Amino acid sequence: MNAELIVDARNATGESPVWVAQENALYWVDIPGGRLHRWQLDGSTRSWQADEMLACIARTAEGKWIGAQQSGIFQLAPHADGRLTANKLAGVEHAIDNMRFNDGRCDRQGRFWAGTLHMDMGAETVGALYRLDAQRDGVLAAQLESLLVPNGLAFSPDGKVMYLSDSHPARQQIWAFDYDIDSGMPHNQRSFVDMNNHPGRPDGAAVDAEGCYWICAIDAGQVLRFTPQGKLDRVLALPVKKPTMCAFGGPGLDTLFVTSIRPQGIDLSDQPLAGGVFALNPGVRGLAETPAKVV
Rank of each mutant, 00 (worst) to 15 (best):
E93R: 15
P186S: 10
C212A: 08
K88L: 14
D81N: 15
G34D: 02
R35G: 04
K241F: 14
A61W: 00
M162E: 06
F257E: 06
I57N: 01
F278K: 04
V126Y: 13
D30T: 06
R262F: 01
F155A: 05
T85P: 00
E210I: 12
V139T: 12
T13A: 13
A288W: 11
G249F: 01
N98H: 15
R46L: 03
Q75T: 14
P263S: 02
K293F: 12
D30K: 01
F101C: 01
R35F: 05
P17S: 08
R201Q: 13
N98F: 12
D219A: 14
D51A: 12
R201D: 13
V207L: 08
Y27S: 07
A86G: 08
H168M: 05
V29A: 01
G204S: 04
P202A: 11
C246S: 01
G34P: 01
L273G: 09
K64T: 13
A114Q: 07
L224E: 00
N87I: 13
L280R: 03
V240A: 10
G159K: 01
S47P: 02
F248I: 04
D158I: 12
W65K: 00
A247L: 08
A154S: 08
A134I: 03
Q49W: 07
A292C: 01
D166C: 09
D120L: 10
R262A: 10
L26T: 10
G230C: 06
A128Q: 14
L41D: 12
R38F: 02
N98S: 14
E289G: 11
C212R: 03
A217W: 01
N188D: 11
H118F: 11
G43D: 05
I6R: 06
Q75Y: 09
W19I: 00
V139S: 10
A141R: 14
S269W: 09
M53W: 15
I261E: 13
V126R: 12
V295P: 15
P239N: 04
A176L: 05
P251E: 13
V126L: 11
G249Y: 07
H118V: 15
G33I: 01
Q75P: 03
G249T: 05
A21R: 12
E15R: 07
G115I: 05
N188T: 11
L236W: 07
L236N: 03
Q70Y: 09
V240E: 04
L232C: 05
